[in-house]
C-alpha cells in the first residue's frame, strides 16, 4: 500500500459507564491498523488511555472494540478500510458489556455465560476428572465431528456478543459465543453432560430467544457460524421434546 499522508481525526470513548468522546489527531500511515492508531495515542499523546491487547496478530481476541459502530478486532482491521470519506474514526468499548475504563470492558459477564451454558468439557467415562482408560474413536468425517469442528475455533473475543441485538434487549441472554460453545460440546461424543447442557441452554435466556438475524455470523472474525449452532440447539430441543426424549 502507498504511504498515506495527512492526519486522521480519531474520537475515542473516555471514562466508564459515564463518559464522553475525546478527539485526537493521529498521523495517517500506510498499512496502519486501528490498533496501531490506539497504540500511537496511548504512547505519544495520552498515556492515561486504557485499552486491551496482547498478540497483535488475531490470535488472542483481546483487542476487540466498536470501530465506527461495528465490533471488530482492531489488530486485524486496516484503518484505511474503515475510515470514511470524511477521514474520521470513532472507537468505543465493546457493546453489551460493562465498561471498566475507556476502551477496556469487563469480560466477566461474557465468560460467566459460558459457564452458565455448561461450556466445559465433561468426560463421559471419567466424571471425576480422571483420564479414561480407553480413548474414543471419533471419525473426522462423522456428522457430529463436523458439527463440532465448525464451531471449535472460537477464541472468545466477544465480537458476536457485542453485535447481538438479543443480548442488548435481554442482558440475561447467553449470547452467540456461549451457545456456540455449548453446541460444539453437544456434538462431542466423548462428553457426558449433554442432558445438563441442553437444560442450561433452553428458554428465553437461552437459544429460544435467538431471532436468527445472524449478526454474529456476519461479524465473527473467525468466520464461524454461531447462528447455525443456535439453530442446532433449537432443533435438538424441539425433537427431544416432541419425541419425549429427556431434554
Amino acid at each position: 500500500m502507498v504511504e498515506a499522508a495527512g492526519t486522521l481525526e480519531v474520537s475515542i470513548w473516555r471514562g466508564g459507564a459515564e463518559g464522553a468522546m475525546q478527539r485526537y489527531q493521529v498521523p495517517a500511515r500506510g498499512n496502519q491498523t486501528v490498533l496501531d492508531i490506539v497504540t500511537h495515542i496511548q504512547r505519544e499523546l495520552d498515556p492515561s488511555l486504557a485499552y486491551r491487547f496482547a498478540c497483535r496478530v488475531g490470535m488472542c481476541g483481546s483487542c476487540a472494540m466498536m470501530v465506527n459502530g461495528r465490533a471488530r478486532w482492531t489488530c486485524r482491521t486496516h484503518a484505511s478500510r474503515v475510515i470514511g470519506a470524511d477521514g474520521r474514526l470513532g472507537l468505543r468499548p465493546l457493546a453489551n458489556l460493562p465498561v471498566i475504563r475507556d476502551l477496556a470492558t469487563d469480560m466477566a459477564p461474557f465468560f460467566d455465560k459460558w459457564a452458565r451454558a455448561r461450556g466445559r468439557f465433561q468426560p463421559k467415562d471419567a466424571p471425576d476428572g480422571a483420564v479414561p482408560q480407553e480413548f474414543h474413536v471419533v471419525p473426522p468425517a462423522s456428522k457430529q465431528r463436523r458439527e463440532a469442528d465448525a464451531g471449535i475455533e472460537c477464541i472468545g473475543c466477544g465480537v458476536c456478543h457485542a453485535s447481538c441485538d438479543v443480548v442488548a434487549w435481554n442482558p440475561d441472554y447467553l449470547g452467540p459465543a456461549a451457545l456456540n460453545r455449548a453446541w460444539t460440546l453437544v456434538n462431542d461424543v466423548r462428553d457426558g453432560a449433554r442432558q445438563e447442557r441442553m437444560e442450561a441452554v433452553a428458554g428465553d435466556a437461552g437459544c429460544h430467544s435467538c431471532h436468527s438475524t445472524q449478526s454474529c455470523t456476519e461479524r465473527c472474525p473467525k468466520q464461524l457460524d454461531p447462528s447455525a449452532a443456535i439453530a442446532g440447539l433449537k432443533r435438538s430441543l424441539f425433537w427431544d421434546t416432541l419425541l419425549g426424549r429427556r431434554a
Partner: peptide, 17 residues
C-alpha cells in the same frame, strides 16, 4: 430443567408448530 425455562421452551415449540 427448571420449570420456567421449560415453559418458555414449550411456548417456542407451540409457536413453531
Amino acid at each position: 430443567m427448571n420449570r420456567v425455562a421449560q415453559g418458555q421452551m414449550h411456548l417456542w415449540i407451540a409457536q413453531r408448530v
